[in-house]
Nucleic acid binder design. Structure first.
Length: 445
RNA sequence: CGGAGUGUAGCGCAGCCUGGUAGCGCACCUGCUUCGGGAGCAGGGGGGCGGAGGUUCAAAUCCUCUCACUCCGACCA
């Protein structure tokens, strides 16, 4: 993309309302614009990142055998009255009345709707197990939205629901989510630690939250530093192998890691003191097993192999996709701007032409742009007639992981400069070598 | 929901106390110069001060009501 052809409304000054780095940088980098309290428009570059995260979530969910669908944002109140949550949910639920006077609501979550879909079509244990998920906008009318997309009222969430005949099968589904979430976050370049959590109003004996450590997080967390050294890596996973998944679950839950809700001081004190850590965390996902809590009231039953009608065992699993954009920035930025991990960068390379209008520089940039594009690399070419400083500042702000700098001075020697946003280290090489190098970097992602 | 604030140009702000018909920086437009870390000079365009009502010869400034947004707390993914 040529910057002169794009819509990237960057701000030099920080809007007054932004308190934390991610909010400030998302506004400055022209990723979002507030439409109302806790409600944002996603401008082109923010939208690009959001889509990338969504794609990763889709790929990893489907890799784990989960099936995508799409449920609506607006739901009828009927199902919620049936489950008993219409009254329980309180003011956080945005209630709407249509022209016929029917009670509607903007969905804060989808247990009721998915269970209704399930019960209308599934009657036999032979159709189980089944895990359905979607990525859809939710609305929770928070009393106090804040921190930009980190605690918005409208937010994009992946929510998935498993239906199983037995508790054992449902825990297999729980572990599938556990493992697929580890992969998902790691692909995004994010260290999200699974921590034992509290079921809260959704309930459930089994629940883990995935937290990104950050000073600006809203959760207090306690953990053994051994867990921060663990990486999932590129293991081959057979998601249908319950035993293998259980091993991974056991491995990752061995070190102590809990939120304040389930924190146990005595257990915590067993950790060697040097490894005992207390911090703040951003919750970017949570998985639950809640048994028959919804299947019983909503009558989601199947006939088992003995002919008995039994309620299905369920769990639900969420990833805050829009919140992840903020969490990623909290975890990856410096004073100059965002530093995107390669897997989620809106543009993979920034191309800076130091002297727009100089025929040699223009030609070299055109060549690089075409060469990189031909390799499938997404380039942001700053072809504005700006001075070097302004272009560098823009690139640092928007945070492309790599930058290729082209100027007459280097071109005299046949070289351009390849710079890492993260380390700031530069290397000179021919334009062809730069294309190859960037191609290699992204071939690995 | 309790407490505290703020609404003046796209962004950041001043002006309000002591009413006299709106200003600064950035951004934007034009020109010239400049050009490897947010350039300089000159010229220019844009707002009627969140909204409604009131007081007054006169309201961004005073009064009343209202809406929105932000921060702290409680709550929450």
């Amino acid at each position: 993309m040529r910057l002169t052809q794009y819509f990237l409304p960057i701000l030099k000054e920080t809007p007054a309302e932004a308190q934390i780095a991610s909010h400030r940088l998302m506004l400055r980098a022209g990723m979002i614009r507030q439409a109302s309290a806790g409600i944002y428009s996603w401008l082109p570059m923010g939208f690009k990142v959001l889509r990338k995260l969504e794609n990763i979530v889709h790929e990893e969910q489907q890799r784990a055998g989960h099936i995508p669908l799409l449920m609506p944002t607006i739901q009828s109140a009927d199902l919620w009255q049936e489950s008993g949550r219409y009254d329980d949910y309180g003011k956080e639920m945005l209630r709407i009345t249509d022209r016929h006077g029917r009670d509607m609501l903007y969905g804060p979550t989808n247990e009721e709707l998915i269970t209704d879909i399930f019960r209308s079509s599934i009657n036999s244990y032979k159709d189980l197990p089944l895990t359905l998920y979607h990525i859809q906008w939710k609305f929770r009318d928070e009393v106090r939205p804040r921190f930009g997309v980190m605690r918005g009222r409208e937010f994009l969430m992946k929510d998935g629901y498993n239906f199983d005949l037995t508790k054992e099968d449902a825990l297999h589904a729980y572990n599938r989510h556990f493992v697929s979430y580890l992969r998902t976050y790691e692909r995004m370049g994010l260290k999200a630690i699974p921590m034992r959590a509290d079921g809260g109003p959704i309930g459930g004996d089994y629940t883990h939250e995935f937290l990104v450590l950050a000073d600006t997080g809203e959760s207090d967390v306690f953990y053994d530093s051994a867990v921060t050294d663990m990486t999932f890596g590129d293991r081959a996973i057979d998601f249908s192998n319950a035993g293998a998944l259980q091993d991974i679950y056991d491995e990752w839950t061995a070190p102590y890691a809990r939120t304040d809700e389930t924190h146990d001081e005595a257990l915590f004190n067993n950790i060697p003191e040097a490894q005992r850590k207390q911090s703040k965390g951003i919750e970017v996902g949570q998985i639950f097993y809640f048994g028959t809590k919804y299947s019983e009231p909503l009558n989601a039953m199947v006939v088992d192999d003995s002919g008995a009608r039994v309620p299905v065992h369920m769990g639900s699993h969420g990833i805050g996709v829009s919140r992840l954009v903020g969490a990623l920035i909290e975890a990856n930025h410096d004073d100059n701007g965002i530093i995107w991990p390669e897997g989620v960068a809106p543009f993979e390379v920034g191309l800076v032409n130091l002297k727009q209008g100089d025929s040699a520089a223009d030609a070299a940039c055109d060549g690089l742009y075409q060469g990189l594009s031909a390799k499938g690399i997404d380039v942001l070419y700053d072809d504005r007639n700006e001075r070097a400083g302004a272009k560098f500042a823009t690139m640092d702000l928007v945070g492309c992981p790599w930058r290729i700098t082209v100027g007459p001075r280097g071109l005299k020697n046949g070289v351009v400069e390849l710079t890492s946003r993260r380390t700031g280290e530069s290397e000179e090489m021919s334009p062809e070598a730069a294309i190859d190098r960037v191609g290699q970097i992204y071939a690995r992602i």
